[in-house]
Design a protein around this nucleic acid. Structure first.
Lengths: 252, 252
DNA sequence: TATGGAAACTGCGTTTTTGTAGTTTTTTGC
DNA sequence: GCAAAAAACTACAAAAACGCAGTTTCCATA
């Protein structure tokens, strides 16, 4: 399967770099990287010894720290944020198993412009900048995939620019709920991740009180349900319809 | 010089793809592409016959049109936008000589999510998707540069997300003025591009009236001057200072 | 340089969003 | 399971942003 994907190279299929890295392999201590890229040998993209286990709440990337490489999420959930005006937190995105963290700093910046915190116990794999550059240099397929990955992230980011500049707060909160739903899915009728109202606000670009107010209204309208911190989406079709004019970008 | 840049390949220097294409060459009819990428031959990235001359106000990319390639701005100024809610226009970015237009659609989308209009008489060079993919496939350096270019755009876009979600309208308008100043520069004390108040608003994510109101205030505070549509920045240090907490990303 | 149309401007009322402060509910650690 | 702490909630007041409608200024063109 891997080789088949690799062969189809210059294509428009959305394929995430590192999609060939399998979690189970790294979990059992000795890590052999299952590769998409047949041209890569062990020495090109060596497995770095420091697989990192993060407890819930641990911040493993600090804003402003020098960029030495990037993280690959093997297992768990992560929030990526930056600190804004008056220390107000801006959540850039959420990440789960199979995604890359810290790639924004890879291109041109010397220091991380974001911080990253584990939302639950999380297993990470770390790749140094130098080993990545070696791999990129040697493997056009890999570089091409990285390019597409960035292009995709750019689309998602621009979609957010649009929503922030044109949607009402209510719409942005709904948009956030749908994003979380796409990203983490549901479990027994509730979103498969527990976030505080403030975290919803920090992603939606508003305040905690606004989120609380709008959640209250949505509950009265039977569009969502809330049991404490756990939120469930009752009528996803109506929610989608409400923001359908605004073509939000699918980012599962 | 070109070959020296090309040799330094896996580096973090910000180098725009196509930076080796020189405007003067294309202007005189017969176009020989001056290349950064020594590995590329004429057949890899052929010069497409349709160099396009756009009159001021001409829209050369329509939203929703199929993506067949991308445009390289040889000369002139362009605004890139998308139409949002209630037909409200959202200006995504401005582009000048040496920049790429339509690259967002290149990655994974089949249709342009943006439109592009020439702000003045503009000369464009068009590259088809297929010839680009061939060139990308063959030339890791080129792909790497494209990757960095996307990474850069991503940073700029995320910076905008931050400003939209955390700045006041006044701050966003100032931010826009500084962006225009960085992008197009000044000429005899005035910004080197003429935009309507509505265009400033569409970039800042607010309304025409707000821009007018804030321009009035800034004039009274002697921070800017306005002679009709032409805007000049009087005290750039104070303006920068006002939004200095918010690390806006330099995008010249 | 006169003129018609477009853009810029202003004041004011309305709506939306935010902030404060105090109460209730939920979560967490022992 | 209990108590303390944290988070969620509510009502109200304040601030920010918006939209309309009418006026003035600018600018391209005849």
């Amino acid at each position: 399967m891997d080789s088949e994907v690799a062969k189809s190279h210059p294509s428009n299929s959305i394929r995430r770099p590192f999609s060939g890295l399998s979690c189970s392999i790294c979990e059992n201590g000795s890590c052999l990287i299952k590769r998409n890229y047949t041209a890569l040998s062990e020495s090109d993209l060596p497995y770095e010894k420091n697989n990192i286990r993060c407890k819930k709440g641990h911040q493993f990337i600090m804003e402003g720290a020098p960029v030495n490489g990037l993280f690959f999420v093997l297992k768990g959930k992560v929030k990526v944020f930056r600190t804004g005006i008056n220390g107000r937190e801006q959540i850039v995105r959420f990440a789960k198993e199979g995604e890359i963290i810290g790639h924004r700093g890879f291109g041109t910046e010397e220091y991380y412009s974001i911080g990253a915190i584990a939302l639950e116990d999380t297993l990470l794999c770390y790749f140094s900048k130098s080993s990545l550059q070696k791999a990129l240099y040697k493997t056009p397929e890999f570089t091409y995939d990285m390019m597409l990955f960035y292009a995709n992230e750019l689309n998602r980011s621009e979609s957010k620019v649009k929503s922030l500049s044109q949607m009402t707060v209510r719409e942005r909160v709904i948009d956030t709920l749908l994003y979380i739903n796409r990203k983490f899915g549901e479990n027994k009728g509730f979103l498969n991740v527990v976030l505080s109202r403030k975290e919803y606000a920090d992603y939606a670009g508003t305040t905690e009180e606004q989120v609380i107010r709008i959640f209250s209204i949505l509950k009265k309208e039977h569009l969502i349900i809330a049991k404490g911190k756990r939120i469930g989406i009752n009528n996803i079709e109506l929610l989608k319809k409400e923001i359908s004019e605004h073509n939000y970008f699918l980012d599962s």
